[in-house]
Design a protein around this nucleic acid. Sequence first.
DNA 1: ATCATAATTTAGGTAAGCCTAATTTTTATC
DNA 2: GATAAAAATTAGGCTTACCTAAATTATGAT
Lengths: 225, 225
Amino acid sequence: MPQKISENIQDYLKRIYEFTLSGSRASTNQLAQALGISAASVTNMVQKLSKTDPPYVTYEKHQGVKLTPFGQQAALKIIRRHRLIEIYLVEKLGYTWDEVHAEAEVLEHAMSPLLEKRIDAALDHPKFDPHGDPIPDINLEIPEIEQTALSSLEIGNKGRVLRVPNEDPQVLRYLGKFGIRPGAHIKLISRTPYDQTMRIKITETGNEAVIGPSLGNKISIAKDS
Amino acid sequence: MPQKISENIQDYLKRIYEFTLSGSRASTNQLAQALGISAASVTNMVQKLSKTDPPYVTYEKHQGVKLTPFGQQAALKIIRRHRLIEIYLVEKLGYTWDEVHAEAEVLEHAMSPLLEKRIDAALDHPKFDPHGDPIPDINLEIPEIEQTALSSLEIGNKGRVLRVPNEDPQVLRYLGKFGIRPGAHIKLISRTPYDQTMRIKITETGNEAVIGPSLGNKISIAKDS
DNA sequence: ATCATAATTTAGGTAAGCCTAATTTTTATC
DNA sequence: GATAAAAATTAGGCTTACCTAAATTATGAT
């Protein structure tokens, strides 16, 4: 019955997109926590999003949500803007990579198609944001990258960092200190049997860093063959 | 009694600022029209804005509103952002001067203090926006400029354009076509007695342009002595 | 000064998007 | 497969910022 929905759809869609990347559906609770609102509110909004014309999501009670193709386009549109802003702020305005996420989170909603185009052009159509996340192109195509978790690296083997988690400034500053950034070459020194904590060496800086297992799972690398 | 008010205060404050520049109070109807909402809504909001702590405006029934010093600071803060964005878009992203107002109108609300600082620095602390409007500095001081309306120029006399109206893209494109922009040197050729329509010559381009009286009143110049 | 008209305010109401509390459904364990 | 715990939904409410219609106040022309 309803037709149009507000601004913050975009936040819902982005989160749903993230949570359903792996193929599973996004749960009400997951979304509530990620969005910082109550589960009841999520249920409510999700029902609306499934009844627009066309619908943004498919929703079945107690089964979680999935994006429709239409919803996915909408999500990718906003993700493209978010990541373009991030890389722009770093490249052109001297931001550090731990500062850009929060800023982009706000700016993405205020970005016109024209501004998107100009920023894209000013950066010569960048393919990745500062954290290594791929930027959907103008047609919202997103390149598939072969990547594995840092945690799956074997001791003594080497790899190249592809992406790091992007939301927590503290983590980003920690990683930055050691030179762990997209493009950095690393080698796994050791892994404790008890808690899987890793020591890795960063080729470019010569530093060694300690990475816990949960962080290790969020850092993506390409393994050296 | 109330304490905090929403986002769009800023739009109210900006408009009130503009309408009270000349010293008079801003009327309910004026604001309603400028904001594209009903007069009743303006009355309502204005009452709220006069009851915050501290209040943004002083308001007396049927007498219109004025900004308090607090409200004026808030207005200048957003005007600074608006104008910084405008000049940034022109200087760094290839916008034309008729495109930037609408864009800035949205972006100004999404601009963090850090972004403001970076943009200000990237442009080396610009003093004017693309339309010649002064940009309040970091302390929200706004330089007073000696200026008069184009319409007050005497026939045969010369002047330098200081600012042009900034909101209507059509007008801006018209002016741009003749080279009428801040800094341009002009000479008044003639003025019809009947409707005060002026013909002016632009030194830089050699063009002649016809300017009606209402537009002539909105273009500010410095008269050549 | 009166009175029509214009401007403003008041009253009452709506839609969005959130909330808490109560209820229902699912899930996981014994 | 019963049942306790967890997850999700429904019901009912709140706030913000808008609206229209009706009432009030101000203004300006005679």
